[in-house]
């Protein structure tokens, strides 16, 4: 519970922050809401030489509609995502997901950018952002670039962010006509992290034929992933409970489910199927 010494920087702009990262590279860690980094520091599991706190950068916490997208600043707290009218109106899945994260204290501190950039294999937001086919705005020394959610998460706590880049914004498409969604989660009892979490976005026509579907799964593998096989099984088909059940059976296709003291690989795989089915059913039942 006693961190090693580090130099603390609180830049006022993203450019200053990037300059610091450029200078210190792998020796620096970015601090957002601190819900993962601070415990790691206290346990000395992370001992960076430099901590770059994004908390003083004025324009990183916002939620606004930008054309056909909702743009959320990286420093936006989970609680703000959960309660935002813009989110609730245009991309409800994010609000539903935010509401399940940790507890009130965690949601008041933790940020969406921190959650995505930390890429905890059991984090909640990665599943939702994958299901919403979101994209990340990343700023580095050479300016900004956009990374699609699916290209962002590489492996356990490993993203496509370079050591001198900062995630500044995430964007997701505005819910279209008839968009339905749900986030279904089984909590790891001790932490509230997802033992399994499945985010679903679904659009069906009047005949209940699936026009569009995306499924993001977290907590199961080394990273959050798109359950493509589930999507394939539904796309263009009539979405019935039977169709959902058979599609959900594909939830861990091509993934090696994780095993640890909290759950075996077999149980995780099972939960992924159950949560996928429940999320799809709930999405279908909603409107």
């Amino acid at each position: 519970m006693i961190p090693s010494a580090f130099d603390y920087y609180a830049p006022k702009t993203v450019a200053e922050a990037v300059a610091l990262l450029r200078e210190y590279g792998e020796q620096a860690k970015v601090l957002a809401g601190g819900q993962s980094l601070l415990p790691l520091l206290k346990l000395r599991l992370a001992s960076p030489r430099v901590v770059v706190d994004l908390g003083r950068i004025a324009d990183l916490a916002y939620i606004r509609r930008e054309g056909e997208e909702v743009a959320i600043g990286a420093m936006t707290r989970h609680e703000e995502v959960e309660r935002s009218d813009v989110v609730r109106q245009y991309c409800r899945l994010l609000a539903a997901t935010a509401a399940t994260i940790g507890d009130v204290q965690v949601r008041n501190r933790g940020t969406i950018g921190g959650s995505l950039a930390h890429a905890d294999p059991a984090g909640d937001f990665p599943a939702a952002v994958l299901a919403l086919e979101g994209r990340m705005k990343v700023v580095g020394p050479d300016g900004e670039r956009w990374i699609a959610a699916e290209d962002f998460f590489l492996d356990v706590m490993t993203t496509a962010l370079k050591a001198d880049e900062i995630l500044t914004e995430v964007r997701v498409a505005v819910d279209g006509e008839g968009a339905r969604s749900a986030y279904e989660k089984i909590r790891q009892k001790a932490t509230g992290f997802a033992l399994c979490g499945v985010a679903v976005r679904l659009r069906v026509d009047e005949a209940k034929v699936c026009q569009d579907v995306a499924v993001g799964v977290t907590g199961v593998g080394a990273k959050a992933y798109r359950a493509r096989a589930v999507e394939e099984a539904l796309r263009g088909k009539e979405v019935t409970e039977a169709a959902i059940a058979s599609a959900a059976a594909e939830a861990v296709q091509g993934v090696e489910p994780n095993e640890d003291a909290q759950a075996s690989a077999a149980y995780r795989a099972h939960l992924a199927r159950v949560c996928t089915r429940r999320a799809l059913s709930r999405a279908l039942a909603g409107s």
Binding site: L43, L45, P121, A122, D155, V156, M157, T158, G221, A222, E256, N258, E259, D260, A261, Q262
Partner: peptide, 13 residues
């Protein structure tokens, strides 16, 4: 204890 949740994924990586 704190590391075991990531152990398998990390070892595979």
């Amino acid at each position: 204890s704190v590391g075991q949740r990531m152990l398998q994924s990390t070892a595979r990586m």
